[in-house]
C-alpha cells in the first residue's frame, strides 16, 4: 500500500483547545497528530491520510501579527512536509476565516494543496476568494462533522490531482473562476426549470455567482476649483487626425498621451475619433469637443474658474475593453496624474 498522505491541520485557539478570547494572542504552535475537530477529520480521512500535526494560533495573533505568524507557519510546513493542508472550518468567524485563508495561501505558494471551510461571506473569502478552496458552510458549528468530511474529500481529490467539478456540485465556495460546461438540457429549458423551482420555493442553483465587482468610492469633491489643476481623460478614441499611434477602435489595451498645452479647442482638421462602438459622424465632421470638451475647459481656465488644464490628455478607446486591461490602464493614468499633482480629472465617458 502506498504511504499515507501527510496532512497538517490548522485550528484557532478555541478549536485547538487552548481557550477563548483570553487566548486570542497565542502565537503559532504545533501539536502532534489531530486535535479537537481534527479527530473527526482523521475519521473522515480514514486510512488514506494521516494528520501529522496540528498548527494552532490565536485569532488576534494571526490577524494582527501577520508578519510573525506567516513565517512561523512556513517553518512548520517545511518541517512537517505535508502533502495537504486543511484549515478550519471557520464558519462565519471572520478573524479565524482570514487566518485559515492565509494558511491556505502559504501552503499553495509551496505547491501544497490546501482546503478550508467557511461561510461564503466570511472575511477570508471576501479577501482571498481567488486564492482559496473553501467548503461552503453555514454558521452552525454543529455541522462540523459533515463539513470536515467534505473538506477531507476535496483535499484528497486535490492531492490526487483529480479535476474538481463546478463549485455548486462539489460544495465549495466559488473562486471567481468561470469555466464552460455542457449541460444535459438546453438553456431555455434550464431557464424555465429554474423559474418553476423559484416560483414553487423549491431549491435551485443559479449558474452565476455575481461577485468580483470593484466597489469604487467616489473621490470627495474638490473644495476649490480655482486652485485646481484639472487633467483630461477620454475613452472616446480621440487621436490626432491620421491616428499615428494606431489606437484601436475596440478592445484597447493601450492609452496614449497627447500634448494640448497650445491647443484651445479640438478641431476636425486636427483631431478624430477612431472609436468603433458609436456613430462618430458628428465628432469627426463637426466637433470633436463632444468627446472631450477642451474648448469649455479652456474657457473655465481663462476665466479663472480652474487654475490650469494639465498639458497632456490621456486617450484610449472604451469599447469592449477587457476588465484587466481597463484596471491596469486606469491605475497607470491615475499614478501619472497624482505624481504630477493633478487635483481633479474630467473623465469623459462615451
Amino acid at each position: 500500500m502506498a504511504e499515507a498522505i501527510r496532512v497538517v491541520h490548522y485550528l484557532n485557539q478555541f478549536f485547538g483547545g487552548m481557550g477563548g478570547e483570553a487566548q486570542a494572542y497565542e502565537p503559532v504552535q504545533v501539536k502532534p497528530g489531530p486535535v479537537g475537530p481534527g479527530r473527526a477529520l482523521q475519521g473522515a480521512l480514514g486510512d488514506q491520510a494521516t494528520i501529522v500535526g496540528t498548527l494552532i494560533a490565536g485569532d488576534n495573533y494571526f490577524t494582527e501579527e501577520l508578519d510573525a505568524a506567516k513565517p512561523a507557519v512556513e517553518a512548520y510546513l517545511d518541517e512537517l512536509r505535508p502533502d495537504a493542508v486543511i484549515a478550519g472550518p471557520a464558519f462565519d468567524a471572520g478573524r479565524y476565516g482570514l487566518a485559515c485563508a492565509e494558511v491556505c495561501r502559504i501552503a499553495s505558494a509551496r505547491n501544497i494543496p490546501a482546503v478550508t471551510g467557511m461561510h461564503p461571506d466570511n472575511a477570508g473569502i471576501l479577501t482571498y476568494r481567488n486564492d482559496v478552496l473553501a467548503v461552503s458552510t453555514g454558521t452552525d458549528s454543529t455541522e462540523m462533522v459533515a463539513i470536515l468530511r467534505q473538506m477531507a474529500t476535496l483535499a484528497l481529490k486535490r492531492v490526487r490531482g483529480t479535476e474538481l467539478g463546478p463549485a455548486v456540485a462539489e460544495g465549495y465556495v466559488p473562486t471567481g473562476r468561470r469555466q464552460e460546461v455542457m449541460h444535459d438540457k438546453y438553456g431555455y429549458e434550464r431557464a424555465a426549470d429554474m423559474l418553476l423551482a423559484r416560483m414553487a420555493a423549491k431549491p435551485y442553483h443559479s449558474e452565476m455567482c455575481l461577485t468580483g465587482y470593484d466597489d469604487v468610492t467616489p473621490a470627495p469633491p474638490l473644495r476649490d476649483l480655482k486652485d485646481a489643476v484639472i487633467g483630461l481623460v477620454s475613452s472616446g478614441g480621440l487621436v490626432p487626425r491620421g491616428n499615428r499611434d494606431r489606437l484601436v477602435g475596440s478592445k484597447a489595451e493601450q492609452f496614449f498621451k497627447y500634448d494640448i498645452e497650445q491647443v484651445g479647442s479640438l478641431t476636425v482638421e486636427e483631431w478624430e475619433s477612431v472609436h468603433g462602438g458609436f456613430g462618430t459622424l458628428i465628432l469627426n465632421t463637426k466637433d470633436p469637443n463632444y468627446a472631450m470638451p477642451l474648448s469649455t475647459v479652456r474657457y473655465l481656465e481663462d476665466a479663472g474658474h480652474i487654475k490650469q488644464v494639465y498639458p497632456q490628455f490621456f486617450s484610449t478607446t472604451g469599447n469592449a475593453t477587457a476588465v484587466s486591461a481597463a484596471r491596469r490602464m486606469g491605475g497607470e493614468i491615475a499614478s501619472e496624474l497624482t505624481a504630477n499633482r493633478v487635483d481633479g480629472v474630467l473623465l469623459v465617458a462615451t
Partner: peptide, 11 residues
C-alpha cells in the same frame, strides 16, 4: 436564448 447546452459555471 439558450438554444445550446453550453454554459459557464463557477469553479
Amino acid at each position: 436564448y439558450g438554444f445550446g447546452k453550453q454554459g459557464c459555471m463557477d469553479f
